[in-house]
């Protein structure tokens, strides 16, 4: 096992996905199998190999540094689960 249930709880917290206590052992097993599968990369000698950063060799295009205004507040807010007075509404953040 690469992961135990405590680590699963920690990852779940980092990923903001609630995983019930009862499921943590099972998920630890599933994730461990995947990590065991990717473990074979350790055999590859990558000394001095640059990590891939861009798969197609192109230089990024530049654009004029100008302001673009989308200005569709109502269109964007239309999908909000909860909105008021033109703002997204979330549970209280500051005590």
């Amino acid at each position: 096992m690469f992961l135990d249930k405590t680590t699963v709880a920690k990852i779940a917290r980092l990923a903001r996905v609630r995983i019930p206590e009862a499921d943590r052992d099972r998920i630890a097993g599933e994730l461990s199998n995947i990590l065991a599968f990717v473990e074979q990369l350790k055999e590859v000698d990558t000394k001095g190999v640059a990590p891939m950063t861009s798969v197609v060799a192109v230089s990024l295009k530049q654009r004029d540094d100008t302001v673009t205004v989308i200005g569709d507040r109502d269109g964007i807010l239309a999908n909000a689960p909860q909105m008021e007075h033109g703002f997204f509404v979330v549970p209280k953040v500051i005590e």
């Binding site: 190999v49 990590p51 891939m52």
Partner: peptide
């Protein structure tokens, strides 16, 4: 990082 190196290979 290792995976991105193997990806280069």
């Amino acid at each position: 990082l290792k995976a991105q190196q193997v990806r280069s290979l």
